[in-house]
């Protein structure tokens, strides 16, 4: 399968990259690992005139820990993040989510964290070859005016966000740094996502994601990522969940939960914070309530955008939520000494 034509640019530093981005505007895509973009280009889903390669921008591949954050450059390879010693011990949820992406030898040596966060939404009716799509009307995402994934059609695109790292990073309160030639802004990762299927990111044409900031851990907090897939590798999630909790050993002080693979963006279940707050640690009923809330919230977004049945995926939101919350809580309880260890 051959790629469509484009010009290839390999800027030597970030300023040059931003300059090019500014000049090309809409007609341009950023090439990181290529595992998402190049497939879509081969299928004719996107045909950018220009590609800007991040290959030479070693400044975007740095991973380091500061007093406040784990800072990960957007072009850091997934394999390098996994190999960065502190990640597995202190951010186990992040570690698990990266391990769950694709398969080691496919994505990890090429794929980047920025690429995983900025991947396009997916749909079984959209991510197909040109000839497949030509046999139907053009859908919203492809510039047309219908949606095959939504019963009865829709004027909106109901594709699904399949980033594995987004749910856990949002749950942990990660921020992202976004740069253009003109300005630099840091926003909560949540705000990177537009929840619009046609263009799921809020990035402007001249902007790029440059860094991810994950807050350092505090005593009594815990994170977990759960992913249900039919295979152990090279599979997108049926449902995924990122959970973060903060306890004082007896009670839940804070909890956040983000569900992946169900909605047009990572789905934050805002209500569970109230539901779980001040509930005793290990309160099964509280977890059940949270799981139910997650399932109800997810149900509204569920579309027939994957090959697995919608009803099953909806049911699994509850199961995966419980597992993620329980694991995060368990980790929180065994995490009294985090501050000392540092």
């Amino acid at each position: 399968m051959r790629l469509p034509p484009f010009t290839y640019n390999r800027p030597q530093d970030l300023d040059e990259a931003l300059e090019l981005l500014n000049a090309y505007g809409k007609d341009c895509k950023i090439l990181a690992g290529g595992t998402d973009l190049l497939v879509r280009m081969k299928q004719g889903l996107v045909a950018p005139m220009n590609l800007i390669s991040l290959k030479a921008l070693s400044e975007l591949a740095e991973i380091r820990e500061t007093a406040t954050d784990l800072k990960i450059g957007a072009a850091a390879k997934l394999s390098d993040i996994l190999a960065y010693q502190p990640v597995q011990g202190r951010w186990p949820g992040l570690f698990e989510s990266i391990k769950a992406i694709g398969a080691p030898s496919i994505q990890h040596f090429s794929g980047t964290i920025g690429g995983n966060l900025c991947q396009d939404n997916r749909c079984q009716f959209y991510n197909q070859s040109r000839s497949f799509r030509r046999a139907r009307q053009t859908c919203n995402k492809a510039g047309g005016s219908t949606c095959f994934a939504w019963k009865g059609g829709s004027d909106k695109c109901h594709s699904v966000c399949q980033s594995d790292t987004a749910p856990i990073l949002i749950a942990m309160g990660a921020k992202v740094v976004i740069k253009s030639r003109q300005e630099t802004r840091a926003i909560p990762l949540e705000e990177l996502y537009s929840s619009i299927g046609e263009h799921p990111l809020t990035l402007g044409d001249n902007e790029m994601l440059t860094e991810i900031l994950v807050p350092v851990r505090a005593p009594g907090d815990g994170s977990a990522f759960e992913k249900l897939a039919y295979r152990s590798a090279i599979d997108y999630a049926v449902v995924s969940a990122g959970a973060f909790v903060q306890t004082d050993g007896n009670q839940m002080l804070k909890a956040s939960l983000v569900i992946g693979a169900v909605a047009r963006g990572p789905l934050t279940i805002a209500t569970i914070e109230k539901t779980l707050e001040d509930r005793p640690v290990g309160d099964e009923q509280a977890i059940d309530e949270a799981a139910k809330e997650a399932m109800n919230a997810a149900e509204a977004f569920m579309a027939n955008n994957m090959t697995q049945p919608v009803e099953y995926r909806t049911q699994m939101v509850s199961v995966i939520t419980k597992r993620a919350l329980k694991l995060a809580t368990k980790r929180a309880l065994s995490n009294k000494e985090v501050s000392e260890a540092k």
Partner: peptide, 17 residues
């Protein structure tokens, strides 16, 4: 019409499975 004409959605087992 074949809805899963690729190795992503036609789920052959991997070495891990």
């Amino acid at each position: 019409r074949n809805m899963n004409p690729d190795f992503r959605d036609y789920k052959l087992l991997t070495a891990m499975d």
